[in-house]
Design a protein around this nucleic acid. Structure first.
Lengths: 337, 337
DNA sequence: CTGTTAGCGCCTTCAT
DNA sequence: ATGAAGGCGCTAACAG
């Protein structure tokens, strides 16, 4: 390994000068600088970033924890994170927790061992183990799309899920729907509560009932979308509109409805949430809520960087705007059902 | 920051003993160990992994370069990489190059500055800048799904693209198709050549012509799938089968064909490549080539780890098996066209 | 089995 | 403007 010393010898200067040439070039004579640069190139020298990190105590890396890497929605956020991090000279350490607490703990602990300076969490769990909880209190951390459950108030970035599902429910009610089914994601989360509350608030305002057994689901996956439809249809209640908690669920739902010979939206309207790329290209194109994923990622980096730099936070909740995309998977209710 | 010294004082031992307790516990008395562990817990001590890295010269991280994070196909591979890396105690640094050479160079250089011990590249370009090329010669590097263009023979992991497109072309020829269109991805790549060669070899064996202007495309995206169809239809040649170089392209193609009032597969058969998750759930479910993405990721880690550990490689090409998934987007040719 | 000591590669006062 | 020297937190010989 070629170190700073190799360069010293080649350039006939001290380590300090080489170091300065790289970090504070204005403190070095043009002539010396030139000699040093030449020596650096000749030696093929690369500063060992680990060694500098040890002094500063900063690794210049951000740990990102995802519950499921394969969800395209998260991807888009990660892309935003990655872009923003790169701009700040930070690199992104990726951890796919797969919902496994042990993995989550391991990854989170990387911040504790200085491998990363901050943590961006795309889940609602407190990612540290009990042993680490105390240490974690001072960790720069932010959650996106969820709120970390902890006494400590970690900042979070999300959209107004309540309002968003109100918008989409209103959209369906506007089409005359009054027989709803809901296919949710993971139940233990703030998102679940907010979204359901949004739906319920509109329906109760309109005097439309929503029976508990018309709320099914439990996971943000295509398979749960299919299964959800099966469960809903098995209830033998009238059903003309299905609200899905993400687009993957909606894709599974539409697929399953077609299998049962039902047409979307003529027989049943289906709406999603997230606006993943493919949603616009399935048949029929999906009515959904667009989340500003790229901005969410960028915001997350901004917030966690602010903590790392010790700049006091004026607030700890960042609510980004959503928008309702009306496409073809939702439409007027059939007159007779 | 609580360091090893804090623990020393608390436990009344030397730094060496603390270090040993953590790394080589068998060299320490049970009693001492106990005292040390207690002190560690009491102090809330976490070894600074940067500091150890500086000694060993290893960062225990792998850099992964992706041309486009949002492609679900890459995601699956990354997931495989992530799982395998975690098993080896390695963490994954993610770099989305977005096809930008400058970003690629920057990320690749992280291996040079010891932030990562090895590089996994999901693209065909040589990721280092000219300046770094010389240094890069000794870097542990492997490419997945592509072959890095360089004099140095870096190992690669891919499937037999030639054979795979032969299989899919044969599948279509078996259905009686003789009027083909092809929508490719990025043209400057080994994959492009191999896949096209596979198609051509079958067609020429069968005496079926493939006109150059029936080969369109240029990017692995839904949009290029749509655009590709438009271009193909504009040729006004008879067309009954479209081979797409990935599933995203196929999704765009099917979407566009429907817009033009054409039915898939009754009027035109469409096949994809990759088998991304959603392919099975679109309408019609896509006939495609399944790539063992998870295995590819795992294999990549295995190969790069072997280089890092300095174990000599017995070979540098790893060809994984593909399989043809016959779903509903392909079918018999219409009798009259 | 444990402590002492000398660095790892770099940065950073403190002199000069 | 540059050099000498100490130290970041940890590990690994080498003693004891």
């Amino acid at each position: 390994m070629t170190t700073i010393k190799t360069v010293c010898k080649l350039a006939g200067v001290s380590t300090a000068t080489v170091s300065r040439t790289l970090k504070n070039p204005e403190q070095v004579t043009a002539k010396t600088k030139e000699r040093v640069f030449k020596a650096i190139e000749q030696a093929g020298y690369r500063p060992n970033s680990l060694a500098s990190s040890i002094k500063t105590g900063k690794s210049n890396a951000l740990m990102v924890l995802v519950p499921n890497l394969v969800n395209p929605f998260f991807l888009k956020i990660i892309q935003g994170i990655e872009i923003a991090a790169q701009e700040q000279g930070y690199s992104v350490l990726l951890g796919d927790t797969q919902g496994d607490i042990k993995r989550e703990n391991e990854y989170a602990a990387m911040v504790l061992s200085n491998r990363a300076d901050g943590l961006i969490h795309l889940d609602h769990s407190f990612p540290f183990s009990k042993n680490d909880a105390y240490l974690a209190e001072q960790v720069a951390m932010v959650s996106v799309c969820e709120r970390i459950k902890s006494e400590h108030d970690y900042p979070f970035i999300e959209l107004d899920n309540h309002a968003a599902t109100r918008a989409i429910t209103n959209h369906l009610v506007g089409y005359g729907h009054s027989h709803f089914g809901v296919i949710t994601g993971q139940i233990e989360s703030r998102i679940y509560q907010d979204r359901l509350a949004g739906i319920r608030s509109v329906l109760s305002e309109e005097g439309i009932p929503l029976d508990d057994n018309m709320i099914v689901g439990g996971e943000y996956s295509i398979e749960f979308g299919q299964q959800g439809i099966r469960q809903l249809l098995a209830q033998n209640n009238p059903l003309t509109a299905v609200i899905c908690f993400n687009d993957d669920i909606a894709i599974g739902a539409i697929h399953e409805l077609k299998k049962h010979g039902l047409r979307v939206p003529q027989d049943i309207s289906v709406v999603g949430f997230d606006n993943i790329k493919v949603s616009a290209f399935i048949d029929p194109p999906l009515t959904t809520i667009d989340q500003p994923t790229l901005e969410m990622g960028k915001k997350a980096v901004e917030v966690v960087m602010q903590q790392i730099k010790g700049i006091p936070m004026s607030r700890n909740r960042f609510i980004l705007p959503y928008s309702l995309l009306e496409r073809d998977s939702s439409g007027p209710v059939r007159l007779q059902n």
